[in-house]
């Protein structure tokens, strides 16, 4: 299963440092996380970028990933 790791700010919502997920795409991931961790709402997650195995995906709506993927949510990177 893929594993989602939460930074300290998200940990407050998630209540844990990481969680294993069966999802293999972004939409399924949101659904699974919000069911497993109700405090981690779509409003919290959707403004964030998804990092898949070290690759930052700013707009992850159609992103998919492997069952072994390491996932992180981070703040979207601003333009300069």
């Amino acid at each position: 299963m893929a594993r989602v790791y939460f930074n300290a700010s998200l940990e407050k919502h998630a209540g844990c440092v990481s969680v294993a997920v069966a999802a293999q795409n972004y939409r399924a991931l949101l659904e699974e996380l919000t069911q497993k961790l109700p405090q981690l709402t779509q409003e919290v997650l959707m403004p964030l970028a998804l990092v898949i195995d070290g690759e930052i995906v700013q707009e992850p709506f159609l992103a998919d990933f492997s069952a072994e993927a390491e996932l992180h949510f981070i703040e979207k990177i601003a333009a300069g």
């Binding site: 790791y5 990092v51 195995d53 070290g54 690759e55 930052i56 390491e70 992180h72 981070i74």
Partner: peptide, 8 residues
């Protein structure tokens, strides 16, 4: 990294 992911 501190923000989560490992660098490539």
């Amino acid at each position: 990294t501190i923000y989560g992911p490992k660098l490539k």
